[in-house]
Design a binder for these strands. Structure first.
Length: 821
RNA sequence: GCGAGGAUGGCGGAAUUUGGCAGACGCGCCAGAUUUAGGAUCUGGUCCCGAAAAGGGAUGGGGGUUCAACUCCCCCUCCUCGCACCA
């Protein structure tokens, strides 16, 4: 079937859109609409999984344009990062060569699809005009105490030879890059951090307002921030040193029989000194810390520990409690030390059984007694406090607060809220990133690079990109040697680069003012467009980027640079596209590729295929069959429009004066119009397209294809089709109006509220809840009238026979149910 | 283990917001038309039992509320995703 010259049409209108700058952002939006699709890491070819994302964004962008909104629909490149650098090492080419090749490839694919971006606002994060503002923002964060350096155990990827943020370590302790997936090690290093924990509570509270986000993402973020309320209780080391310990269960305080310290907590190094246990403790810690994190923290692993030879005093009972080092205690949470309550905490129970530590029962269930020796597991549910001094008899849930008050009054503890969220480690020992704008001077210490010296340029090429366990830039003499801005003496630049998630934390703001040379963006420009009206991207960013960009937006709000506190109200996470059961992937060369697909079937076909197959948030298994239906749909449109003969000169419609058949068509048109618009607004593109298909079938069957109302319907249908199959719609539009501009500069009229329902309606009649007949009544029929017709219906009458009618329920326009006995 | 979401024809999915004709739309399949043939196209049909009509059954399983339940409530099974020794 060669009747539909798909590529010819598509290329024509893609060129037209570009030349006429149809998707250029209006400078002074009156009715703003900001559609943002997460930008891409340009790392190779583009598959249908990518395409799905961009088609969703483009569809809503085009619909809003037709509705008269001033739309901002930008795109850009998340261009710094490891794959470019690894490619550079492998092929010995500068990372920027590889990166710009990839960008060009991606851009070609996006243009093949005809996505309507405003390319004048393109943002590329590896260019100095972008990353200088990463540096500028870093300096502002530094001034506000939100960027700091500390020594800490950090996640180290031995293959990438760099540290990673917590968010970049997978659940099973591997490097987040799927092509690397090397087990992460812990290494003690001095690194730069962003103090996101200062915003932990705000970020948590803010989630409540994000009602347009998927529930799953909100829950994930709540868990990731992980707020817990409790108390820091102060025990005492045998030499008098205070030993604070965090607990959420102070009601079990009388049940403490030991303390446990993390092997990587600072105190662990010194605690066993001068005891006979010193050597064993040292060996134990060394062994545990050498284990890859995956093995060490694997759930269900048997707990291990070692006695330190030291004791602590219980704050209330003054009992002597042995102090252990235990591998299940985390150094990075709380104080790195926990109180062991084997009776009421499962981990402590297992540990106590293994090392023969005493078990005390201090909470009992209301209905039975617990005997320590008979316990097979810890009793963790609420109950009544026992063996707890003056707290005996108190319900444990009430005891929590009473105990905290009691401890606070005596200065033995204080109420505390703890978060699981850690500060964000942003320094990387790699080349291909934003240089950290700091200078290390032997005399003045750490000195920020003055604003007027920005950007600190990344040297465009270096001799050897291969990392050797320390920063690549440290070995680049002409970069690393500089003068101290304070004392003008010789000094060294910070050799690290920033995590690429810094780049993506504010790109949504740069798009609003992409060419600003004085600021990352002008507040008045950002405020014109923020918040993002629809943000579209993958759910894999739930606890990474989607927290970081909220964090940045809040900091920028506090700096007075943006009015909003949250960057986006509505978030759509699109489902993965898989092929033969496996997620499509560029790096694994597994997928259906945009280029060949568009060459064969066309861009409109690709768009409809991904939009029609399933709702956007659902995962999608690609199959060639799903292309058949939409391809047929496009051909049917084409054939219909080619078969209808000349357009009447006047297609004005006076709805009230239409003949019956025409009136029916007009009503169906309005019903379709309403459904398509409302479904698309709700991101139910699959049912919106279904409605268009249904209406096309109506158009096929309509007898008088030369009537004005028919042409009116064809024209409206074209407008409704435009967001979904923009190339074909544009082509058809220009047949109606050869001299006018783009269909996307037109205005989609409102549907006609007065013609949404037919003059008669069909009412199903149930008897005792079972469907027994259907009656046709005028639209305005009252309950009495419907009842009269229903009772006259033959089938209904036979069913009722001589039974008595108990009651009749009528739901206007929906159903009538006759209850008989 | 904790948390979130889900289970509807041979398949992808509608209807769940607001309880009101379950299976829209599409794929596949069947029949007819057209065509030299194939393909394409057009028209119609397509949940199950029942030859058919009548009727009955059916939304993972079991119970409940209701005139009426895919939809609400309780219990169970299974699936997907996230977090996972966070004290």
């Amino acid at each position: 079937m060669s009747e539909y010259p798909v590529r010819e049409i598509e290329l024509r209108w893609q060129k037209f859109w570009e030349e006429k700058k149809v998707f250029q952002t209006p400078p002074n939006p009156k009715k703003k609409y900001y559609v943002l699709v997460m930008f891409i890491y340009p790392s190779g070819d583009m598959h249908m999984g990518h395409a799905r994302n961009y088609c969703i964004g483009d569809c809503i962008c085009r619909l809003r344009k037709l509705q008269g909104y001033d739309v901002l629909h930008p795109f850009g490149w998340d261009a710094f990062g490891l794959p470019a650098e690894n490619a550079a090492i492998e092929h010995n080419i500068p990372p920027w060569v590889w990166t710009f090749d990839s960008i060009n490839l991606c851009k070609r694919n996006l243009k093949l699809l005809g996505i309507g971006y405003d390319w004048d606002r393109e943002v590329t994060t590896c260019l100095p005009e972008y990353y200088r503002w990463n540096q500028w923002l870093f300096l502002r964060f530094y001034e506000r105490g939100l960027a700091y350096r500390k020594e800490a155990y950090v996640n180290w990827c031995p293959r990438c030879q760099t540290v990673l943020a917590n968010e970049q370590v997978t659940a099973d302790g591997k490097c987040y890059r799927s092509s690397c997936a090397t087990p992460i090690e812990k290494k003690k290093l001095t690194q730069w951090f962003f103090k996101i924990t200062d915003y932990a509570q705000e970020l948590l509270d803010g989630i409540d307002e994000l009602t347009g986000w998927p529930e799953s993402v909100r829950t994930m973020q709540r868990n990731w921030i992980g707020r817990s309320e409790g108390v820091e209780v102060v025990f005492q080391l045998d030499d008098g040193t205070p030993l604070p310990v965090f607990t959420t269960r102070p009601d079990t305080l009388y049940g403490v029989t030991f303390l446990a310290l993390a092997p990587d907590a600072p105190l662990a190094e010194s605690i066993a000194e001068n005891t006979p246990y010193a050597q064993r403790v040292k060996e134990f810690c060394a062994r545990v810390l050498l284990q890859p994190e995956i093995e060490r923290i694997a759930a269900g692993k048997e707990k291990e520990g070692v006695f330190t030879g030291r004791f602590a005093l219980h704050p209330l009972t003054r009992e002597r409690l042995p102090i252990y080092i235990a591998d299940f205690v985390l150094a990075g949470y709380g104080t790195g030390m926990v109180m062991g309550v084997p009776g009421h905490d499962q981990r402590d129970f297992e540990f106590a059984r293994k090392y023969n530590l005493p078990i005390k029962v201090v909470i009992t269930p209301p209905d039975r007694k617990l005997l320590p020796d008979e316990l097979t597991e810890a009793y963790t549910a609420p109950g009544i406090m026992v063996n707890s001094g003056e707290f005996d008899g108190t319900p444990s849930e009430e005891g929590i607060n009473r105990m905290i008050d009691y401890l606070e009054r005596r200065g033995l503890g204080r109420r505390k809220v703890l978060y699981r969220l850690k500060d964000w480690l942003i320094s990387r020992q790699r080349y291909w990133g934003t240089p950290i704008p700091m200078i290390h001077c032997e005399r003045c210490g750490i000195v920020p690079v003055p604003d007027e010296q920005l950007p600190v340029l990344l040297p465009p090429t270096v001799k050897d990109y291969k990392p050797k366990g320390k920063s690549v830039l440290a070995g680049v003499e002409e970069f690393i040697n500089t003068t101290c801005p304070k004392c003008l003496g010789p000094a060294k630049r910070d050799p690290d680069t920033m995590d690429t998630f810094v780049d993506s934390s504010w790109y949504h703001l740069r798009y609003t003012d992409p060419h600003n040379e004085r600021l990352p963006f002008a507040p008045e420009e950002a405020n014109r467009w923020l918040p993002i009206d629809e943000y579209i991207g993958g759910i894999e960013h739930a606890c990474g980027h989607l927290i970081f960009f909220r964090f940045f937006t809040r900091v920028l709000h506090d700096m007075g640079m943006v009015a909003v506190k949250e960057p986006c109200q509505v978030l759509h996470t699109q489902g993965m596209v898989s092929l033969e059961g496996k997620t499509m992937s560029s790096s694994k060369r597994h997928g259906v590729w945009v280029g060949p697909f568009v060459e064969e079937h066309g861009a409109d076909c690709a768009r409809l295929a991904v939009l029609f197959a399933a709702p956007p948030e659902k995962p999608l298994e690609w199959s060639d069959e799903m292309v058949t239906g939409v391809k047929r749909f496009l051909s049917r449109i084409w054939r219909l429009f080619n078969s209808v003969g000349p357009r009447p000169s006047d297609i004005g419609v006076a709805p009230e004066r239409l003949a019956e058949k025409e009136r029916e068509l007009y009503i169906r048109l309005n019903q379709t119009h309403k459904k398509v618009v409302q479904d698309a607004e709700n991101f139910q593109f699959n049912t919106a397209i279904a409605a268009l298909m249904e209406f096309l079938n109506v158009l096929y069957l309509f007898p008088d294809k030369s009537s004005a109302v028919y042409w009116f319907a064809l024209e409206r249908f074209t407008l409704l089709l435009a967001p979904f199959a923009p190339h074909l719609a544009e082509e058809l539009w220009h047949r109606f109006y050869p001299d006018r501009g783009s269909i996307f500069s037109e205005r989609l009229p409102e549907w006609d509220e007065n013609f949404l329902s037919f003059d008669t309606m069909e009412i199903p009649v149930q008897i005792n809840g079972k469907l027994r007949g259907k009656v046709i009544v005028p639209r305005q029929a009252t309950e009495e009238e419907v009842k009269k017709v229903a009772l006259a219906d033959k089938a209904v009458r036979e069913f009722i026979a001589d039974k008595k009618i108990q009651r009749v329920i009528y739901v206007a326009g929906r159903v009538m149910n006759i209850v008989i006995s």
